[in-house]
Design a protein around this nucleic acid. Structure first.
Lengths: 155, 155
DNA sequence: TATTGTTATACTCTATAACTATA
DNA sequence: TATAGTTATAGAGTATAACAATA
């Protein structure tokens, strides 16, 4: 296909723009299905993280990229709705482990299933090799970012 | 390369998850540079819209997908900071036209330039062919989505 | 002393409902 | 009456700073 020489300034702009648009496309899908299940995006993110982890408040704050005080409120609101529970850490008297409740799991799984179906539909027109190329690149970028932040994005 | 048989259910989940993480990574960059210029994402969006338009409050609400009361507050905060200005419509005594100030224009252009530089840095470690694959796929998806919307927009 | 987590406070952002002024 | 916009109110989400309890 296109065999360009070097990335020009307008290439950079166009690429940054394309990534922003793509990000808004994906977050739009997430928001749509979260809202359909009575969740905000950040609440959905919280429940999604807890699907396969039981982090402390501190770990949760780092994973979500929030201040610990913001995380306190976020988890408190989710707990008030019965979606998560804080349990004292058995090894550290200062810490709490945040668990997903059955109700929370049901809600996030419903939202994720709907989102997943939507993603599959969006990806459907892509030829196999192109789709593989997308996830190769995305996987590398996420791995690099995880290393940068010293957390496991994929447990 | 990986020559897998067919997309399994867990592939679909992992892929949808990866896209979500990637979207959060990109919007995180957008937010970071907006924030570095003292702007929120929605404020940046507001200023971006006003770069080439002078809509009424009502039109602005529709463009941003917000309730008109939300738009009142959004514009009021931006106006208080000298980033935009409301001027009475010459044709409708009830309406105001929202203008971008020079300060607002400078701010949004600065934020965009910094975001662009950050994207370039994030992409830098990717081998050329991988990066090309990413933008091939993203370009196709955005084109497909644009087509979808055009079709939807035609009654 | 350092870390974990919460509280107090303040701000942005958002929506619903009620309101004013103009068309 | 209908439309444009604001105000009042309520709540989520976020950060900073000060704090308590534990390590």
């Amino acid at each position: 296909m296109t065999s360009e020489p070097a990335a020009s300034s307008s290439d950079r702009t166009a690429q940054a723009d394309a990534l922003a648009q793509f990000a808004f496309l994906v977050t739009g899908l997430l928001d749509k299905h979260a809202g359909a299940n009575g969740l905000s995006m950040v609440q959905t993110r919280l429940l999604g993280v807890l699907r396969d982890r039981t982090p402390t408040m501190n770990e949760l704050a780092r994973i979500l990229g929030l201040d610990k005080s913001s995380t306190t409120g976020l988890v408190a609101r989710a707990e008030r709705r019965g979606l998560v529970a804080r349990r004292p850490s058995p090894t550290d008297g200062r810490s709490f482990l945040v668990h997903l409740s059955d109700a929370g799991r049901g809600l996030v799984e419903e939202a994720e299933a709907q989102y997943e179906a939507d993603v599959a539909e969006v990806l459907a027109p892509l030829p196999r090799t192109v789709r593989d190329g997308l996830f190769d690149a995305v996987g590398r970028l996420l791995a690099a970012e995880a290393g940068r932040r010293d957390i496991e994005l994929v447990p």
